[in-house]
Computed example of a mutant assay.
Amino acid sequence: MIHDAAALTPLADSPIPLRGRPPARDDRALVELMHAAGMTPLAVASTAAWLDGEKRASPSTRASYVTDLGWWLHYLHARGLDPADVHPLEADRYAAALRAAGLADSTRARRLAAVSSWYRYLVRAGAAQRNPLLDMERPAVEDVSKTRSLSKDELDRMLAHSRQYETARTYALLCLLVVTACRVGGVVAVGVDALGYDKGNRVIDLPVKGRGGTKTKRFIIPPYASVALDAYLVERGAKPGPLFSTSTGRPIDQPYVYRLVRRIAKAAGVPQWESLSPHSVRHSIATYLLEQHPLHVVQDLLGHADPRTTRRYDRARGLLDRSPAYALGAAFAQGEAQHLKVGVDG
């Protein structure tokens, strides 16, 4: 029985800011937080090794882990706690404080997962006593992406508008986004020398997420998009450099592609155009392909390591008319009919 009334005080009551400008945005700021918290050189070295791990090889992923860990260290320092020996109760207080701060379930789940991963490594390296987040109750995250998607008809209208009213560069860029379902980061980073042929197929080697940005993936460019690309290349010329560049020769950037997608969608009469992004195209192509191809085929195209990530793109997977029960019923109905026929003939 609990006798101390203070023990029933809501754990979320925390004056510590847990949203807004991150306490750490780079390695240097993170190290400063660790020093302020009194962490040992072994803990700092272990953190550096953890950040160099395979799951954090991408610069953007590594930066996300640094930011999430920075929030935790900021919280502990404000409470005067030693990061190397935190009681699970304090981890639960932190989780409750994140919820009280109004953060989205996905954001809270990501922050907690990052901290738990860090502690697993520190315990393994002998730099922490325990993982205080072990077996913690964490936010349930929806397994369907909330990115605004497009129907095939809407994509068709955007492509038709681009072909008729936009520049050859814009039409070729949109075609490439559609036929490769690539991330916008790959399109803005690719050079003209990435184009080529492989066993008679027109291909392009695009930078993809992972391995510090040095990894590339070969994509097929089907004839439909190849025609658009060739028309643009005639206009662009054979000079080296970025495949899609500005009039001054500088590569286009991601904000430009964001604005471009929305402008074309608006001109093509696509509803809610203001909520679209280049990633909407990737989502839409994934959904479209999953209606026609096995999961593993679409997973390979998108470059997902985990098939569960690909499944999040399948907007139509909950539709009842796609249930395999129909195919199952038809198969057994056919088998039953064959046996009934044999019985009658006999």
Rank of each mutant, 00 (worst) to 15 (best):
107 T>V: 02
331 A>I: 12
264 I>G: 03
184 V>R: 00
293 H>K: 13
223 P>H: 10
109 A>G: 02
102 G>W: 06
66 V>S: 03
312 R>K: 12
79 R>V: 01
142 E>S: 15
196 G>V: 11
21 R>V: 13
31 V>Q: 15
246 T>A: 09
76 L>Q: 11
128 A>S: 07
106 S>G: 00
52 D>V: 03
235 E>S: 11
41 P>Y: 05
76 L>T: 14
240 P>V: 07
291 E>P: 01
86 V>K: 05
126 G>P: 04
23 P>S: 09
196 G>I: 07
44 V>M: 14
234 V>H: 13
270 V>K: 02
34 M>E: 09
75 Y>I: 06
294 P>Y: 10
333 A>P: 02
44 V>S: 11
168 A>S: 13
111 R>P: 09
102 G>F: 01
152 K>F: 05
40 T>Y: 06
23 P>G: 00
70 G>Y: 09
205 D>S: 12
117 S>E: 01
224 Y>T: 14
315 R>T: 11
141 V>T: 11
291 E>C: 08
341 K>S: 10
15 P>K: 09
89 L>P: 00
303 G>I: 10
243 L>F: 03
47 T>R: 10
17 P>C: 02
43 A>H: 05
128 A>N: 02
7 A>N: 07
175 C>F: 00
236 R>A: 09
296 H>K: 12
117 S>I: 12
70 G>A: 10
10 P>Q: 09
222 P>Q: 08
10 P>N: 08
235 E>Y: 08
205 D>F: 08
53 G>F: 08
65 Y>G: 07
310 T>H: 04
23 P>R: 10
65 Y>A: 13
21 R>Q: 13
42 L>C: 03
243 L>C: 09
183 R>D: 02
310 T>W: 07
264 I>E: 05
346 G>S: 14
157 R>H: 09
214 T>R: 15
328 L>V: 13
201 N>V: 06
60 S>H: 13
